[in-house]
Amino acid sequence: MTKPLLYLVAGARPNFMKIAPIVRALRAHGGLDYKIIHTGQHYDHDMNEVFFKELGIPAPDLFMAAGGGSHAQQTGKIMLAFEELCQAQRPAAVLVVGDVNSTLACSIVAKKLVIPVAHVEAGLRSGDLAMPEEINRLVTDSISDWFFVTEPSGVDHLRREGKAEAAIHYVGHVMVDNVLYQAEQLAQQGGAGLDPAGFKAAHAGQRYGVLTLHRPSNVDDAATMTRIATGLRQIAAQLPLIFPVHPRTRANLERFGIDLGPNVTLVGPQGYMAFLHLWKDAAVVLTDSGGLQEETTALGVPCVTIRENTERPVTVEEGSNVLVGTDPERMVEQVQHILRGEGKQGRRPQLWDGHAAERIVAVLAEQLA
């Protein structure tokens, strides 16, 4: 008897962290066939066999090479390529994750072809329609058939938007599944060869912080970036920081003439395990990343988020995350609280237990049987 075929769509490196636990759960379950579809939204030369071996999954079955361009160009190229793929071998369902352009594009194509859509990380809302990711979330959820939700706010949003109760599944978070899996792998393997610029070795026995910044609202505006840099220089005077710099962020630092000072070590983008090796032992993580807010909460690492809002409020309500906006004084104040041992004591939210993917696969196997 032929098993139902599930297309697992990923377009950017973080998407693979989210589908990896689902692939492992599908293998263990055995009731569904699957193919990993890489849209090529972000092509990363570092995505080689070692990367997928780290994740415990095979390399993608199909690579669509959609490439860059504007949001409209990229979305259109992905839609054309994915439509051709679905017509050549029609899947029983399409699973999309997160909120990138590939998520939106493949959801629309599947729905137009009357193929059911499962959205993992459904229901998240920042309320900020200036964020492209927010548009992608809203549109994807408006046409999905099954909603796999990471936190209570997602359930509330979907109910308010009129989604059928039977279609909403609060399952926990596959990103947490993955970080727990990777942390265990790291503990077994050790950190040999994973210390960028020898930073951890140079600061052995000392506290340090990790910084990431990539959101256009933070790094593309000279005044905002200058304001953030003011806070970072003050923090670095007390706590050495390491900053894996996104290429666009690095270019803007140079273009705006911003110097973060001698206590901020700039390194290139890091592989998943190398970056985990860095931040898991940090005194604090400063970031504007959505995923890192969740991962730090999962491992109990203090997180200071340089944004005015978050689509992941459970990381603030229950986890180790604090929002400070782009105000240098608030940034410095929160880090000082943490360094004095006065920071908030977060906890891991309900169902963030490493088994979200198993719950997702169980639901899909039942629905597609």
Rank of each mutant, 00 (worst) to 15 (best):
T249D: 02
A251E: 15
P262F: 09
E308Y: 10
S217M: 06
V284Q: 10
L260V: 01
E311D: 13
V245H: 08
M225S: 04
Q238F: 09
G231M: 02
R250H: 11
L211E: 11
L286D: 05
Y272F: 15
T226H: 11
T297P: 00
G209V: 14
G257Y: 07
G261H: 14
T224R: 09
E254F: 00
G209K: 14
D259G: 05
T297Y: 04
R255Q: 14
F256M: 04
A229E: 02
D288P: 06
L213P: 00
H277C: 09
H246L: 06
I258V: 09
L292Q: 06
A298W: 00
Q238I: 08
T310N: 10
N218M: 11
D221K: 03
P240V: 14
D259T: 02
A251N: 13
G231F: 00
T310M: 13
E254D: 04
Q206P: 02
Y208G: 10
I242V: 15
P247E: 06
D288L: 02
P247D: 08
L253W: 01
T224M: 04
T249S: 03
G290Q: 10
T305E: 03
G271A: 13
Y208D: 09
P313F: 09
F243N: 01
Q270W: 08
L292T: 07
L239R: 12
P262A: 15
V304R: 10
L211D: 08
L278N: 01
Q206V: 03
R248F: 08
A274L: 02
T212V: 10
R233V: 01
V210Y: 04
T296Q: 08
A229H: 05
T212A: 06
L292G: 06
A274R: 04
L278V: 01
L260K: 02
L260F: 00
R248H: 12
T296R: 08
D220C: 00
A237F: 12
P269T: 03
T296H: 09
F256P: 09
L260I: 00
L286K: 04
Q238C: 12
R215F: 01
A236P: 10
Q238A: 15
L241V: 11
P313Q: 11
T296F: 13
R250E: 13
H246C: 03
T212D: 05
G290K: 12
G290C: 10
R215C: 03
G209M: 14
A236K: 10
